[in-house]
């Protein structure tokens, strides 16, 4: 598959949140305000891209040579957790401005299923490290797009008259459903 199509498919057609349901928790949880949504989106993009690269390298050069492929789930989740720690420590020490902007979101990402999901998908689809990293980057951009759009809509819903039973969680789900239908438009070419 050529890399452009892969990128497009990862970001729009097979949107990680709206069609694959990965990272739903963060998508619903941190989308109340557009500012927090942008922060979360950027942090996820950063970690997801990095994690798909590191997991790809570890899988290819450590697990495969020792035929320990069956340890991949346990290895990847530990890599992601450790990676988030390191990124946090690194940013705190060296890139203070970036840390101030992203730092608070980083710990929330460890168990964002999109991160582990993409690492596992890269293995399942047998992507090489470059393809896997590109796939990770564009999947994350798809996440960014979805969470920011949802946040903007939710800010508007605040002013709407929602039926009582639908207030809170249900109306957010209905919104997500409509977004998901809209994203389906990308697949019909």
């Amino acid at each position: 598959m050529n890399i452009m199509l892969l990128a497009l498919s990862a970001a729009l057609i097979n949107n990680v949140v709206l069609s694959q349901f990965l990272g739903i928790c963060a998508f619903l949880g941190v989308s109340k305000k557009s500012k927090t949504a942008v922060g979360m989106g950027v942090a996820v993009t950063f970690v997801l891209t990095l994690a798909s690269f590191v997991c790809g390298v570890i899988y290819r050069y450590l697990l495969v040579p020792f035929s320990l492929e069956y340890l991949k789930t346990i290895a990847f989740i530990l890599i992601v957790a450790a990676l988030v720690q390191f990124v946090e420590m690194f940013l705190k020490k060296y890139i203070k401005t970036l840390y101030d902007a992203l730092g608070v979101y980083l710990p929330l990402i460890t168990t964002n299923c999109a991160v582990l999901g993409v690492a596992l998908l890269n293995v399942q689809k047998d992507y090489d490290i470059l393809t896997g990293t590109v796939y990770g980057l564009f999947t994350a951009l798809g996440f960014f797009l979805a969470i920011v759009i949802l946040a903007f809509i939710r800010e508007k819903i605040e002013y709407n008259n929602v039926p009582k039973s639908f207030q809170g969680f249900p109306i957010v789900m209905v919104t997500a459903a409509l977004m998901s239908i809209a994203f389906f438009g990308f697949s019909s070419f």
């Binding site: 057609i13 097979n14 399942q124 689809k125 047998d126 697949s187």
Partner: peptide, 8 residues
Amino acid sequence: DSDGYGGD
């Protein structure tokens, strides 16, 4: 075939 919509 690796050009499927949802994978191989």
